[in-house]
Write a protein that binds this DNA or RNA. Structure first.
Lengths: 226, 226
DNA sequence: ACCTGAACACCGTTCAAGT
DNA sequence: ACCTGAACACCGTTCAAGT
């Protein structure tokens, strides 16, 4: 027993006791950055408070000074992701409003779809947009999308509702695609109608989006006729 | 210490050592029933293998004979829920196909929305429909919905795609609503456009559904013109 | 004000048995 | 074949401190 202890004492695997982090060295920002990196590399399931603390070289409990609990942390992460995605959105072009609207949400969907981490985090937090976390550019991109529908002839209030319909469709679809990606995916059997029904991919997304925008166009024509 | 032990020995809180369950007494069915009851009463978060075992008066590990792991269990639960919901769907009426289609998905959405347990489980498992778990009636309801679009003039293959678009929209929306319900909901500020954008409720659901069906109608008219 | 370890009451899953 | 307890390696969160 004595020799065991001696070996452990001078052992190669001796744990270097982490140094205490200086006072103001942690921040919500740094924590979210680390969390995001973990999710990006290992998936949301691997994001635990202990893992996160190791990553930050901090004590587990330090995180609780900045976030009430894990849920609050993931929520904040989802908001940041949504802001980032808006930031990366290309500006609206000057084509017909309906085509531009389709492009807008195709781009939005594409960005969310691109990184598994985005999908996961937005799916978990249901990805509500919070204005205060949007950067100026992100806000401008969002406003650009809304303006499309004003350009099309809607009041700003109506534009929000119709734009929201597209946004909800897109967010919801991303969640479904995320669920699909998480499970083992059998190859799509073209002859099985139920499989076809469940199937969600980018092409299906575009079909729904096209139908949705078609519905809006129809609404506008109907009101113009009156 | 000695007296403590004595008290514990004859104590009122003495644990009655559960009797071993007889051989074939457990089943996937019974496990799913119990799981469903827990989710219905206490929410998906409270569903743990130990809780479930207590409910079943079985050992925790017995469950693993019937389900590979917890994920598989929740997946199976989601499939059963979806089957139940289809079962409860009213049969299709003989109104115009577009109105009937809207009614169909309003009913579908209403049923999923009615029980928090449904929302949660379908949101978790992303609720893919699996034919083999659908009862005969459930299959008939589903087929009835599909037939609407055939009645409208689509081929069976196309009907599946378009019907799927509505189904995906509905499933996705339920997940968003679930996420919303889970968080503390600030009262909707009519004047805040971002809040309006995020907002998901039954009325918003119906708007999107109406637009979607309007888009399908439009597609059909376009093809009829050609 | 901010960071910390110890402690608590849980998890899901595996394993090596019992019957 | 089916049910089981013990054991393992984790969790999230609270608390009572340290600095």
């Amino acid at each position: 027993v004595a020799s065991d202890r001696a070996v452990a004492g001078e052992g190669v695997t001796a744990v270097p006791p982490r140094r205490r982090r200086p006072r103001g060295s942690l921040s919500r920002e740094e924590i979210l950055d680390a969390a995001r990196e973990i999710v990006e590399r290992e998936g949301l399931r691997q994001l635990s408070m202990p893992t996160l603390a190791t990553h930050l070289k901090s004590g587990v409990t330090s995180i609780y000074w900045y976030f009430r609990n894990k849920d609050a942390l993931v929520d904040a992460l989802a908001q940041r992701v949504l802001s980032d995605v808006h930031q990366q959105l290309p500006p609206i072009g000057d084509g017909p409003w309906d085509e531009e609207l389709v492009s807008y949400f195709e781009a939005f969907h594409g960005l969310l779809q691109a990184l598994p981490a985005y999908r996961e985090v937005v799916a978990y937090g249901s990805g509500f947009i919070v204005e205060s976390v949007l950067t100026r550019t992100a806000q401008r991109r969002l406003q650009g999308g809304l303006d499309l529908l004003v350009r099309a002839g809607l009041s700003p209030e109506e534009a929000v509702i119709y734009f929201g319909a597209c946004l909800n469709y897109t967010r919801g679809f991303v969640v479904l695609q995320q669920g699909m990606h998480q499970r083992a995916q059998p190859p799509l059997d073209e002859a099985d109608p139920i499989a076809q029904l469940n199937h969600v991919d980018d092409e299906r997304f575009r079909l729904g989006l096209r139908l949705l925008v078609g519905g809006i166009r129809q609404d506008l024509q109907d009101r113009a006729r009156r």
